[in-house]
Structure formats: structure tokens, C-alpha cells
Design a protein around this nucleic acid. Structure first.
Lengths: 338, 338
DNA sequence: CTCGTGAGTGCAATCGATTGCAGATCGCGC
DNA sequence: GCGCGATCTGCAATCGATTGCACTCACGAG
């Protein structure tokens, strides 16, 4: 691969001129410009971006870490991120943390070593390396943005929905349908997102003066949804509706219901969360809370770019609207057999 | 952020020594080493990787382009890629091409400009920029690897399954069940993968001496599966089995069947391809060809690393085994009503 | 006592671009 | 005919690390 010196020699100009032709053509005379371009094309020259990055102290890359890319929820967010990023001439450095603190740290270190200009993390844990950067940047804003989750104590701006309210919406729907015994399958309570949803659910239960919620804890996997369902079904008076904190667990519940010949929604209502692409194709189609995944992804990039372009601003966190999508998996409870 | 000079000054040594402490500690005396490490920790120094990359002419990054990350098929492959990559100390530069030639080119240019050490592309089109690199590298192997698809004329090694044989397996299954009128929903024929599967299907039809295949063309989306199904159902004698070249189109077919009260598998057998995570949770669970997604991803990285570590080898393409997974969406045809 | 050896360290070049500043050239107005 | 811009180009420093080579020093063998 030729470098800028060879191009310069070939065109009979200095390297500076070659650089200018490529970056600010307007300051170079037409004739030189053409001569240089000919040499560039002839040699198939492409500037070495590493050298450029070093000189300009900018990489043009955004680091994005995701807890689990095989979850369609995150892959849609990533798609939104990639889309805006590349439109704004940034590339995406991608890391799948698999919910592993270690991996999270490793990726965050890449920000310190300047492999990327900024970090978008979609989990709930701010890696230590990132936290130290944030502290160092104070009172200005470090180029770090959170997505989906929101923990005000991190001091990191975030794009997310109002999880408590969304959960409340679901509970109201179920109570309005006439359900009284409702089961909830949470995600890991380490994440604020799960806690917010749980809070939204319990608050609503109290507000409606209903009986206790039955709570099972899951980990967002289909399997954990199945386990929770088994647990509920094993009880003397199983709930007539189950609200899962994501669609995959709801799919697990549907699966167990199917194997037990429990008819949904006649004998059991099921609600998910996220509205992943496959939710609507379940049997019955899944009632769920639609999150604007793409918009969340796009929002995080916009936030990050704001910080990058003007470090003095302290962007606010953004709350995006959610939608309760009612499909076939919810209905009034059948008359209880006593 | 401090640089290596500040650390050196602080520790009272030369920058070279600092570098050596960090990279080859064994050649530095214990005492100096400790002194340097103290300075490193005190200042919170992290080497600037851009400078390192420039000097070493190596970025430690692999560029991965994917046609559509929101497809769970690709997200699993990406997960496999990321997993091996990071184990081998490579980071993943991720690009979603959205089946767009333009984007493909743009990403391929990043390889030329040395933003990454190698390229893994999961589509079927080798971008021009990449092709020129491949030609320039000949007879050695350019650090470019293909996944899922395989086009021998590209001269790029690939990891994939035997698509023709997999399609043949499906057709044999359907013929063995007693189906005679079979519909096929292909992907875009621009991709060798689709052509291979179609070839496998038609060859089998001939071999079994069955009637003509009915072929509809899709684009791997649920919607195109639905359109194809509508088309089939509109015919005078609709097929009794439909074989889709991916699971999402099969889901589309199931969806149309449901809305038309066509019972699967009693009135219609449906087969998909890929075995994405949600295939088994469909109603009925989808019969499909399981591809080893993770292994495909891992394989591409291994291939790429071989080239990177020893450019003189010309790695062979790898064919991974597939599995026909029979679930509830296939059954013998019901007795035809005449 | 001298020389050889090896361990430990520093000097300075290098990777490939960008960019502030200065110099050259030319035209034009007075 | 002189001077002043305006326009264009080149020089050389710079970004922050790595690394081949040379040097110093200490120690052991002969």
C-alpha cells in the first residue's frame, strides 16, 4: 500500500499538498488538484486512518456494549445505533458482554486507551474504568451514554422508557379485565429497569386495592420464564394472569401453558415486554409493551454526539414513549371454578 | 490523560523503559519495574492504542459486515464471532449493510484505510474495494473471509453449510411423508445460497420423479413469506407443503395459514431454514434445518486469524454439518378432497 | 589484571498522516 | 515602478508509542 509520500513524489508535490487535496480541496489550485488526484487513483492510495487518528486525537469510532446480542431486543437497538452512527461518519466497535462484569471492564478500557471516542452501554453496570473517566471529566460530561437502563446515581445520561409507568399500564389492563390473582416474572433485580417495573406493578396493585402480587424472579431467558410458569402452576390457586418483564420469558410461559393444556387467553392471560419482532407471531399473539428500540439506539448516539461535539453541555436523559399493545394473549379470566 | 513521557519523567526513566515494562517486563530489572509501575498507577496511565497501532501497523480489530442484524440468524453468528475474536484479543468493528451495496463498499474501504486488520462479510457480494485488495494480495491470501454464503469464484475462503444437500434433505422428508405438490419460497436468487438451495430442491424433485415444484421468490422477510403463501393459496390446487428458505418466511406462511384457518400440519406442512431461536416456539413448532450459527461465526474468525498469522497459507473453505429438525409443522398430507 | 559476556537502559529513528507558519508567485492599483 | 494582497505551496514540527542499536556497568573466567 502506497503512503502519502509516494503519492506526493509521483505527483511532484509535497505531502502537505496531497493531504490538502484530500481534505480541503478548495485551497488547492485546480491544476495541482488534478495532478494529485491522478496520482492518487493511479496508485490506489487510501490514507492510513491510524496515522490520521493519532494526529487528530480522534478515532471516529463509538464503542457499544450489549448484554446479549442474540436477544432481538438488543439487536434492534444496535441497528438503530449503527444507522445513525454511520450516517454521522462514525463506525461502531461492538462488544457483547454476556452479562459479564469482566468483559464489561475490558471493553471500557478500550475507551481509556482511546480505541474509541465514546461509549454506549446498554447494561445497567457502569464499568469501573468508565466511572473513573467520568470522574476525571467532571464537571464536564465524559463521552459515555447509557441505553435502556437508567440509574441517576451514575451521573451518565441515558435514553429509556418510563418503565414504572409501563408496568403500571400493564397491571391496569389486567385489573380492568377482571383479573385478581396476578403473577409477575421479573428480570434480575440488580438492574434498575427490573426494579422500576416491579415498583410500577406493586404500586398499581396497592392503588387498585387488589390482593398481593405473586412474584417470581427470572433472568430474561425463555427457560427462566418456563421455570416461573411451572412454579406458578404448582401453587394451589395459580394466577389467572402472568406479566413477564420481557417477551422471551412470556414465550416460556406460553410454552409451558401449551404443554399443560392451559388455554391462553381463556385460562390464563400472558403479557410480555419489549414487543420483539416475533411477539406478534406467537399463538396467541402476545400482548406486550412496545419499546421504541430503534429510537432508543438512535437517541443514545445523538446524546453521545452532543457530548463529543460540545463537551460543555450536560445532556439530559431522555424518556421515550412506550405503547401497550393488546393482542390475543390477554382476556378476562374465566369464571373461577370453586 | 498522561502519555508515556510523563510516566517516564515521573519514574525517572526513559520512555523506552516504560514501554518495555508494559510490554516485556522480563527484560527490565525488578527495581525499575516497580518504580515504573508505581508511576503508571499513580497517573492512571493507559497506553494510547492509536500510537501503538501506527507503529506496529496492526489495529487488533476485525471488521464484520452483516446484511441485517435484526435477523436472529445473523445475531447468533455475530455472537460467535465476537466471542472468539475477543478471546484472541481482537475487537469487532461492526457494520450492518442492510443489503445495500453502497454500505458494503463503505465498510470495505475501512479495510483499505487500515481501520481493521481483516474483514468478515456475511453477505454474498464481495465489495469492489475488498476485491481489489484480494487481487493485490495474490497469490497470497487477503485477510478477507466469507460466512454463510459461498461463491468459489470470489477466491475468498468461506464457512458455510452444504445448502444444496440441506434443501435436498428437506425435500426428501416431504416426499417421504407423501407430499406431491410442494411449494418453495426462495430468497433472492442473487445469492449463491438461495441458488444452491433451489438447485438442491429441484434436483431432488427430479430424482424422486415428482411433479414440478412451485416456486415463489421471497426476500427472507416475514412479509415476503406471507405474500408467497397468499399466492400459493390463490392457486387452484395449492401445494400441500411449503418449504421456505428461512424461518422468518416460514413464520409468514404460518401466519397466513392461521388467518385462513388452514390447519398446520393437517392441511399444510411448513418447513423453514436456519432454526432461529424462536422456531421451536411457533404453533406448531417449526420443522426446519438447523445451521450451526455460532460455529459458523467462530469458524470465520479462525480462518481469518490463520491468514493474519501466516499470510502464506491458503485456508480451505469449511463446510459445517447441518441438521434437519423435525417438529410439529410437518405431517403427511390429508387425503385430498376431490 | 584484562577481557568477554550479559543484563539493563537510553538514544534516536520510525510509523503516516496533519497543520501552523513562512515563503514564493502573481496580479493589480496607484 | 513599487507595494500590497491574495493565492498557493512547502517546511518542519507534531501526535504517542515501539524498537534496533549502542552504551554502561558488573561480574566471572582465564
Amino acid at each position: 500500500m502506497p503512503n502519502i509520500y509516494e503519492v506526493a513524489k509521483r505527483a511532484g508535490v509535497s505531502p502537505s499538498t496531497v493531504s490538502r487535496v484530500l481534505n480541503r480541496p478548495d485551497v488547492v489550485s485546480l491544476e495541482t488538484r488534478q495532478r494529485v488526484m491522478r496520482a492518487v487513483n493511479l496508485l490506489g492510495y487510501t490514507p492510513n486512518s491510524t496515522a490520521k487518528n493519532l494526529r487528530q486525537a480522534r478515532t471516529g469510532k463509538l464503542l457499544v456494549t450489549v448484554p446479549d446480542i442474540s436477544n432481538p431486543f438488543f439487536s434492534l437497538i444496535l441497528q438503530g445505533i449503527e444507522d445513525v452512527a454511520q450516517r454521522e461518519d462514525y463506525a461502531v466497535l461492538f462488544g457483547d458482554t454476556r452479562h459479564d462484569d469482566c468483559r464489561e471492564e475490558r471493553y471500557a478500557l478500550m475507551l481509556k486507551s482511546k480505541e474509541a471516542d465514546g461509549l454506549i452501554f446498554l447494561g445497567h453496570r457502569l464499568p469501573d474504568a468508565a466511572a473513573s473517566l467520568a470522574k476525571a471529566a467532571a464537571p464536564r460530561c465524559a463521552p459515555i451514554v447509557n441505553g435502556c437502563e437508567f440509574n441517576p446515581r451514575l451521573g451518565v445520561p441515558s435514553v429509556h422508557i418510563d418503565n414504572a409507568r409501563a408496568a403500571a399500564d400493564v397491571m391496569h389492563l389486567l385489573y380492568d379485565l377482571g383479573h385478581e390473582r396476578i403473577g409477575v416474572v421479573t428480570g434480575p433485580l440488580a438492574s434498575p429497569l427490573s426494579r422500576d417495573r416491579l415498583r410500577g406493578a406493586t404500586t398499581t396493585t396497592q392503588k387498585r386495592g387488589a390482593g398481593n402480587l405473586e412474584v417470581a424472579h427470572g433472568d430474561f431467558s425463555v427457560e427462566s420464564g418456563m421455570a416461573a410458569a411451572q412454579q406458578f402452576f404448582a401453587s394451589a390457586r395459580p394466577p389467572t394472569a402472568i406479566f413477564c418483564f420481557n417477551d422471551e420469558m412470556a414465550i416460556g410461559v406460553l410454552e409451558v401453558a401449551r404443554s399443560r393444556r392451559v388455554k391462553v387467553p381463556r385460562d390464563l392471560s400472558v403479557v410480555g415486554f419489549d414487543d420483539i419482532r416475533f411477539a406478534r407471531y406467537m399463538e396467541p399473539p402476545l400482548t406486550t409493551v412496545a419499546q421504541p428500540m430503534r429510537a432508543i439506539g438512535e437517541g443514545t448516539v445523538r446524546l453521545l454526539l452532543m457530548i463529543l461535539n460540545d463537551g460543555s453541555v450536560t445532556p439530559d436523559s431522555v424518556t421515550l414513549p412506550h405503547t401497550l399493545v393488546t393482542r390475543g394473549s390477554t382476556a378476562p379470566p374465566s369464571v373461577p371454578r370453586r
